[in-house]
Every structure is written in structure tokens, then in C-alpha cells.
Write a protein that binds this DNA or RNA. Structure first.
Lengths: 217, 217
DNA sequence: GGTTACAGTGAACGACTGTACACTGAATAG
DNA sequence: CTATTCAGTGTACAGTCGTTCACTGTAACC
């Protein structure tokens, strides 16, 4: 009978015949997803090529068709996670008029993105201080983020005459509050989110409260 | 000849015949020191019992005379490192009169301790976000530190009428600045110390500048 | 001075690691 | 329709891992 159920329907919702490179990319993504899953409770350096391959449903040697080494996969993971991070930053950059509006909007965006991509943020937070090549890559990304923030901050009236050095100091301070908040959200027990975001807003408000009275050393 | 040089003198400066438990303690310390050394550029979870034993000059099986497992050694390492941390906090608690005095004195103490015990602070910073039991133990220690700081802060005139919640918010903020500074010092290239401590002082000054104008909620 | 406690030894184990190599079979190219 | 490309397979090997066990030599004890 021509209308017999295709066995592929049980495995794969999509109907179109997948091309070869598409299959390859799916396996690659399966490797990345498996790694991210295993990274939920241990550092990247403890992952083995074999268990990642097994999790993705391929034999160990096939791993090399996608990455030259585990470190290579780590780099790809950093790229994927920082893409999420940049997405968050883009979302948060909604030119606000007031400090207060900027603060609560930014914290809300942060909260939303962390909850939607916990594994990415957990990975970044974990590996940021783990040492090694990944930590450096993540550090460079955060420094870029801080630099962009400093430029954004320079647009505010009260900050217009600040030295670039002081602007970077302020931007780094804000980034460190954001980072602390991310870690708190990832460690939170259910129901604590509101308290954490509330505290984050307070911290940022306190910092910006000092801005009008600042005199550089 | 009775004044012949004892071979032990070449290995060990002390003259007295070392007792058995003293020898044991030295081996134990050698294990801890070796682990700390290896931890300079990798996470704790990647250390193997065998290489730590080898570094301490004993055979792998002898490791068990001192620790039941590597995780046990990790706990001992957390205790050793947090002892250093508490020493720093004790040194910094020199009842100052002014904010400014407190800030520069605290940052100076921080700088001095980090440089004198880089491996302890590197270990704490690395494992703080690494996940697992050690991270929890370190987190608990930091929370205790933050709590003590909140109590200290309550003694300042301007902070006397703050709610305990807001005091904790402020203490956490200060701790996070301290942590950021520690990591910056550990990642610094030679000669950057003054710039980093200077920035740290600025960040604290900015935060405390907002204190007099704070209104909760 | 004889006995005990015990830090450290050395061989052996089964499990796991990364990687080399020859292969298979199906999608793709000509 | 035939030839090629290449993601994935299966076997194999040399290391390393944590842990077991029976052992040795000496400091400490009675």
C-alpha cells in the first residue's frame, strides 16, 4: 500500500529528506547539546570525548568528523553561549530615558535570558574562572561587553564629562553586579527569583545614586 | 668524627629527631602543597590521586593514610584557604573613623594578602563557581563573611537606620567588588597592581557615595 | 627488649581514556 | 548509471586511573 506509515515518521517529525550536510550539522549539534548537558554539574575539563560521543549517539572515532579535539568543541561551545549573551545585550539596549527605567528593564531582560538559557549561562559562569583557553576567551568577551557598556553610559547627561577611565570603572562595576546576579539566579531555589532581581535592582540603584556626587580622585 | 655533617641537614634544616606523627603531618602538608601547586592552572576535579601522591614523593596507595579520597583532600584545602581568608578579614578590621580611611586600608590589606597567598586565593576563585561540594563550602564561607561585614557596617552612623536586608545588599555588593578585585590581581601582568587597587578603591568610593542618599524600595 | 602500631611499598586488577587504522554504505557528483 | 565522497563503524593498543592486598621497616609502647 502506498499510504503505509514511513518508519522515519516515528523518529523524525520532519518529512523532507534530509541532506547529508544537514545530517552532519545535526550530529554536530547533538555533540554540543550533550556536552552542555553534562556540564550542568561538572567543569568542562572533566568531560571525556567518549562520553560526549556516546551521548550524541555516535561511536568515539566519529567525533573527529566534527571537532579536532575536545578543546575545539569547547571553543564552539563558547561561541554558542556568547551568541546568547550578545542576544541578551541587544535586547537590553532599548534607549531608556531614566536611570530607574533602564535598571528595571535591564534586570528583567537579564532574568528572562538566564531562565531561558540556563545551560549557556552556567557554562559561561563555570568556565570564566576555570583557567585555560576557554576562560581567556570568555574573559575577552566580557571585556568587550564592558567596553560597549562604557560607550552607552557616556550618552547619559551626568556621565558626559566623566573620563573614559572612570566610565570603564563604572561599566566594570555594573558588569560585576550583573555577573553576581546571574550566579545567584543559577543557584537559586524555586521561588527566589523575585527576591534576587529585586536585590539586583537595589544594587544598581545604589551605584547610580553615587554618580551625581562623583569626583574623580 | 663526631662533627660529621648529618645527611639530614641537607634535606631538612631542623636538627631535632622528628617524631612519627610529625613526619606524617609533613607528608600530609606535602600532599596539600602539591595539590595547590597543580591547581595553579587547572580545576580541582582534574587532579588525580596518583599525580598528587607522586608530587608529594609517596606511592599512590600511601595517599589513603592521609585522606579517604581526593574529595577529602579538597575539603582540607578549602579549610586551609579559608583560614587565610579569615586572617585577611581579621587584619582589615581595624576600626577606622572615615569611609576613605577604611577603603584604602581594606584594599591595601586585600592586595597584600592576595600577593602573599596567591595559590589560596586562586583556588578559592577557581572552585567557587566550579560546582560540586567544594563550591558549596566556599559559598557558605563567603556568605558568612558577608554577614559579618553587614554587622560591621551597621556601626557607621549613616547606616544605623538601614534595614538589615539593605545592609546585606550593601555587604554583598562590597564583597562582590572585593572578589572581582582578587580575580583581577590574580590575572594581572606584573606592574598592574597599582592600577587595579586604584580602580578597586574608586569602585568602593562610588558605592559609598550613594549611601547618604539611599532610600529603600 | 620484645611487641605493637602504622607510614610507606610494590604488584596486580578491571575500568576508562584518546587515537590509529581499515572498513561500510548511502548520499552526491559527473 | 557509475564513481566518488565521507559520516559513521569496529577493532585494537598503549596509557592512566582508583583501589585491593600482602608486605616491610622503624618509631613508639609496656
Amino acid at each position: 500500500m502506498s499510504n503505509a506509515v514511513d518508519i522515519r515518521t516515528l523518529m523524525d517529525v520532519s518529512e523532507e529528506p534530509v541532506s547529508r550536510q544537514e545530517r552532519k550539522q545535526r550530529t554536530r549539534q547533538a555533540l554540543l547539546d550533550t556536552a552542555l548537558e553534562l556540564l550542568a554539574d561538572r567543569p568542562f575539563a572533566t568531560l571525556s570525548l567518549r562520553e560526549v560521543a556516546k551521548g550524541a549517539g555516535i561511536v568515539p572515532t566519529a567525533f573527529y568528523r566534527h571537532f579536532a579535539s575536545m578543546e575545539d568543541l569547547g571553543v564552539a561551545l563558547v561561541e554558542e553561549a556568547t551568541r546568547t549573551l550578545r542576544g541578551m545585550i541587544r535586547s537590553a539596549r532599548t534607549d531608556p530615558d531614566t536611570y530607574q527605567g533602564m535598571i528595571s528593564a535591564s534586570v528583567a531582560t537579564l532574568h528572562q535570558f538566564v531562565r531561558a538559557h540556563e545551560d549557556h549561562f552556567r557554562f559561561l559562569a563555570r568556565e570564566r574562572y576555570a583557567g585555560g583557553g576557554l576562560a581567556q576567551a570568555i574573559g575577552a568577551e566580557l571585556r568587550m561587553f564592558s567596553g560597549d557598556l562604557a560607550i552607552d553610559l557616556a550618552r547619559f547627561p551626568k556621565l558626559r564629562e566623566w573620563s573614559t577611565e572612570d566610565l570603564h570603572m563604572l561599566a566594570d562595576l555594573i558588569v560585576s553586579v550583573m555577573l553576581t546576579t546571574i550566579v545567584e539566579l543559577l543557584e537559586a531555589r524555586p521561588g527566589e527569583d523575585a527576591k534576587i532581581t529585586g536585590t539586583a535592582e537595589k544594587r544598581l540603584r545604589l551605584i547610580l545614586l553615587g554618580v551625581p556626587h562623583w569626583k574623580s580622585a
